[in-house]
Design a protein around this nucleic acid. Structure first.
Length: 469
RNA sequence: GCCGGGGUGACAGAGCGGCUAAUGUGACCGACUGCAGAUCGGUUUCUAGAGGGUUCGACUCCCUCCCCCGGCACCA
């Protein structure tokens, strides 16, 4: 089935047709590593991980690029607050970002591009914009983009300039010619990190790094640009204006995707509101797959309300699917070649794969896709009740592998060490009871069975100890 | 003020101009069961913020109003 994507630029679902055959260039706004990674990040990046996974699953060759804003106002602010070097702040926070995203199973990014590695490209682009008359230098050595020169200003977000300024809460910087203009290059202030430029020492503006990075990697046009909805304006609008003015090529990006915000009990997540959830805090309470399931069990463009109760419910829901998987694995070990429910089960598998593909192809509707998986799980459970054969069950396992490949769920072999140890302790305890009853047949049976699993028992004066061989 | 997105059954949350409003959670009943759990079957929602309109027919399209959320240009 053909993939359709909701494009913010046109506000419609469109057929997904990459610019160059099966090759897809995909760019997602990465984070500014100024603080710990929070659940809002997790929501966005899990979604784009699934987008990349699904497109690859459909046979596209996806190059997934993510930037890292390693110099920005908030990092400088953090530097002032903590006295630490900006590089240290970035390195520490980015390392923990990679760590938690890895735990969450996000492994689809091909390249992380640091803004400060692209200063030469940024300078070239600013020079180009100045040459073409889309930018001007202010007296302090900053460079601004002249939004009045770009006729399509506002086309991504639908903003109208005049009304905008009227309602803006922010005071206008008087170095700008027009209140709508934005900085391409910010002149250095005392104590700030800075790079050389023809306009004096300074650093890149917030928006220019992304266009410098993508033009460097993808050229003047690429397929998919993603980022949280809060970035659509002004950030993405500015990117579009920079790139199209600089290259003269339209459209800069073919499909713009904007996932909705994460809310905490109906409020925006904010440290000042005391409702801030670091991903690591959530991971201490729920398994990574449950968190993934929680985010994917919603539509990506809708705002998602987070609450511990909601996570607990997700945990129960996902447990239902894991339960089915577990009984499939158990049945496969003991099923005979053919079973009574096979015909129905095979049909259900085929339908489930189709329904899953149809849902995912419709703008990556993970919620619908999961609904199809739940339907399927019920049919699988029913078939197992009737008695399913190994061949049909192998197909079930294959289908779940396919779903898991796209969603990053249903991982096999989740051997909880704590669980294993608890089980062995339990068996050893039961064996102790048996020995006390002088039921040595049972005691020996347990010792031998554990021995066959590679666990050695050693009886001592103060009870039995066990170890792995 | 302007731009964008929403208001769906006990709760969470999808889709669709007409087929039982998906799916999950919860509750209840039944089957299975020594007990429990899991699983299966069923019940629980006949209603979609409010009011108009279009239509043979709207939760789904249009209009008005109410409410909620995000953004409004380097900045809570």
């Amino acid at each position: 089935m053909a993939v359709r994507v909701y494009n913010t630029l046109t506000r419609e679902k469109e057929d997904f047709v990459p610019l160059h055959g099966r090759r897809v260039s995909m760019f997602v706004c990465g984070l500014t590593p100024q603080d710990v990674t929070h659940l809002g990040h997790a929501k966005t990046y899990i979604m784009f991980d699934v987008v990349a996974r699904f497109l690859r699953h459909k046979g596209y060759h996806v190059f997934y690029l993510q930037n890292v804003t390693d110099i920005e106002d908030r990092i400088i602010k953090k530097m002032r607050e903590t006295g630490r070097d900006w590089k240290e702040i970035v390195a520490a926070n980015f390392a923990s970002y990679l760590d938690v995203m890895g735990t969450l199973g996000c492994d689809s990014v091909d390249v992380y591009a640091y803004a400060t590695d692209y200063v030469p490209e940024i300078r070239d682009q600013i020079r180009g914009l100045l040459d073409k008359g889309y930018a001007y230098v202010s007296e302090d050595g900053s460079v601004y983009y002249d939004t009045t020169k770009f006729k399509d200003w506002g086309k991504l977000s639908g903003q109208k300039v005049e009304e905008h300024i009227a309602g803006a809460r922010i005071e206008v910087d008087e170095k700008k010619r027009d209140p709508a203009d934005f900085a391409l290059w910010k002149a250095q202030k005392p104590g700030e990190p800075a790079w050389d430029s023809p306009w004096g020492k300074g650093r890149p503006g917030w928006h220019i790094e992304d266009t410098a990075i993508t033009i460097q990697h993808f050229g003047p046009q690429y397929d998919l640009h993603g980022g949280g909805i809060e970035l659509a304006f002004p950030h993405h609008e500015a990117e579009l204006a920079q790139a199209e003015a600089f290259t003269g090529v339209t459209p800069f990006v073919k499909y713009w995707m904007h996932p909705g915000m994460l809310m905490i009990r109906g409020e925006e997540m904010h440290k000042s509101l005391g409702n801030f959830w670091a991903v690591s805090d959530a991971l201490a309470r729920w398994p990574p797959e449950v968190l993934r399931f929680f985010f994917l069990n919603a539509h990506y463009r809708s705002p998602l309300d987070f609450s511990p109760e909601g996570l607990d419910e997700a945990s129960r829901s996902y447990g239902r699917l894991r339960e089915t998987l577990r009984s499939v694995e158990a049945e496969r070990r003991r099923a005979s070649t053919e079973g009574k429910g096979d015909a129905d089960l095979r049909g259900a598998t085929r339908r489930a794969l189709e329904a899953f593909d149809a849902a995912m192809s419709d703008d990556f509707n993970t919620r619908e896709a999961l609904a199809a998986v739940f339907d399927y799980a019920r049919e699988v459970n029913r078939a197992i009740g009737l008695g399913a054969g190994r061949g049909a069950l192998d197909e079930v396992a294959g289908a779940f592998d396919a779903f898991g490949d796209v969603l990053g769920l249903f991982a096999r072999g989740e051997t909880g060490v704590a669980l294993t140890e608890g089980l062995v302790d339990l068996l050893v305890g039961l064996r102790e009871d048996a020995r006390k009853r002088k039921d040595f047949a049972t005691a020996d049976r347990i010792r031998e069975a554990l021995g066959a699993l590679g666990i050695a028992l050693e009886d001592g004066r103060d009870g039995a100890r066990w170890k792995r061989r």
